[in-house]
Design a protein around this nucleic acid. Structure first.
Lengths: 333, 333
DNA sequence: TTGAAAGCGCTAACAT
DNA sequence: ATGTTAGCGCTTTCAA
């Protein structure tokens, strides 16, 4: 860390530090020849601004934090890419954190971001930090929730799909294809993506005048192993459903594995439709029918909202950004 | 940003700022009752240390940067997880950047990290920044290269597999299974992962006394579309190879798509072995025979090396960390 | 044990 | 157009 600093350049040129600073930032008047000399010296000396010092002085770190439950999940990776795109264009840095689907890791990441003076936060929460979030009011830094909307957190910006409606529509589409005995593997009941998708599913069944079969609705944790385990339970049932809705990609992969191991065919023996099971490889057969959140756009919009809040735009109490999921029809139903 | 600061706590308690600082950091003697009072006040006021100010004062940002070409690639996602694990345990923050396989984005990320005073850097480079890296000597911050080792960058830490040997062994294993007409889809020739894997492949053929068939060796860019395009070219050939080695996961997915579209079977019509085509879903059939880099360990080791350099350990000129890839034998050969 | 003061590198208000 | 100065929030000598 023996880096060149403004002082070095100033001394070398026989001008003041502030002149160098102005020449570089473009704020304030600087003589044309002086500016040239400064620029040349900066080039030549390989000066790099110390963003830490600048952030402290400006009381603005110019970075946005994003916390996701699983960076390996291509859905979240896409969200990150979207957010990064916006950040890059606006000169903000994006600090990516992974909570590993763990509340205490999420809290840890939250604290780190807080300490690093993140200007804003995009949060795909696994829940439970309502206190930390509420208490700190996060340094007045804007927060945008995506994916799971924790309870107890209101009056915050949200970018998401309408999970209830989405699950209802997906289930209706399943019904429309003639399936009547439909089950579901949901996510954790304490996450809105889990509970709302379940609620939408049940609503659709009730609307269709069908009885709910609780033994056909199992709760997973969004991970592959749980999808597999849930599907194995389903398959062991005396009377089993003809079709399943599954609340995310990894659980779907686990479930398909279980189905294959059992020697059953999709969709002949059991049909499938999922959330976010967008197979980028295009190699999984049959292609999975899936209702996909526009991940990259979610990331982009979330970052845009942060920026607009930072620019002073007020949140509209009655407004949420609701994006439409896109249905991909594969051969799995 | 109207955050509580040390001064607020100090005033409230009628002590000096330095006393509060000491009570919190544990450095320097502080009376037991005073310490208790401080801790209580800190708890109650929801004080959070300002890491920006601390970093400036300490001239140490305590964060490690990592730049990867594609955060969506599960291989790199695993590397990141490994690095993050180590960082978390040692109180460093990990700043994740995505270069999108683009040299200028990589350079941009490099510059940002430089400005943010990253204490160290883990770099899966797409090449071309040798100047920037060399010139700045990166603030004396340690750099560890993983994956691609750019030319012109020597005397730097490296964590990788022996790509030449790995490709040679993989090709030999292919030969041992009786295949003689083998082609390859390589990565960019200016990246070591591309050129070394190609060299190892060719070495194995030559060693086996086989003639090289240049028309069977195509260069992709590590992306899916290029894998598909390369394989389509191969399939259009009059005389085509009976087996292919493919240098990474995405190109393999693209290639398999091309093979399927052509209505050919794997491995009956064309056999396949790849690098890092570890299918976490377990659903791609046939299972792809793949030589996998221990991604998470690479990330972990890289971070550990950064930390040891920061702790003052010197690099041993003649030492590189070379990890062993793991062969997964699927039904694709 | 505690306080006063300096200073990390930068920007911006104010003076010249 | 340029220089002087104060200060962002923190840690750490040095005194008391």
């Amino acid at each position: 860390m023996s880096a060149v600093k403004l002082e070095d350049i100033a001394r070398q040129l026989g001008v003041s530090i502030s002149t160098v600073s102005r020449a570089l930032s473009g704020n304030g008047r600087v003589g044309e020849k002086t500016r040239q000399r400064v620029l040349a010296a900066v080039q030549e000396s390989k000066y790099t601004v110390n963003a830490v010092a600048r952030s402290l002085r400006l009381r603005d770190a110019r970075n946005i934090g994003i916390i996701v439950p699983d960076i390996s999940n291509s859905y979240f990776a896409a969200v990150i890419k979207g957010a990064q795109e916006v950040c890059r264009q606006s000169g903000y840095a994006l600090m990516v954190c992974n909570s590993d689907e763990d509340r205490s890791f999420e809290e840890e990441a939250l604290r780190t971001l807080l300490e690093k003076q993140a200007s804003g936060l995009i949060l795909a929460s696994v829940g439970g930090c309502a206190e930390l979030l509420g208490q700190y009011a996060y340094h007045d830094a804007p927060i945008v929730f995506i994916d799971n909307i924790p309870q107890g957190v209101n009056a915050a910006d949200v970018v998401s799909i309408d999970n209830l409606a989405a699950a209802r529509e997906l289930t209706r589409a399943m019904l429309a294809r003639g399936y009547r005995e439909i089950g579901m593997i949901t996510g954790p009941g304490d996450q809105s993506t889990g509970s709302l998708r379940r609620a939408g599913f049940e609503q659709a069944l009730v609307d269709a005048g069908l009885a709910l079969r609780p033994e056909w609705v199992l709760e997973g944790d969004f991970r592959m192993a749980s999808g597999r385990a849930c599907m194995e339970s389903i398959l062991r049932l005396e009377e089993r459903p003809r079709a399943m809705i599954i609340a995310n990609n990894y659980m779907t992969y686990g479930a398909i594995n279980a189905i294959r191991v059992a020697g059953l065919r999709i969709p002949e023996d059991i049909a499938l439709a999922a959330f976010d099971a967008l197979d980028e490889t295009g190699l999984i057969t049959p292609l999975i029918t899936s209702l996909n959140q526009p991940a990259q756009r979610i990331g982009r919009r979330a970052a845009e909202i942060i920026l607009s809040r930072l620019a002073g735009e007020e949140r509209r109490e009655d407004e949420e950004v609701v994006l439409k999921p896109v249905l991909f029809e594969g051969g799995s139903w």
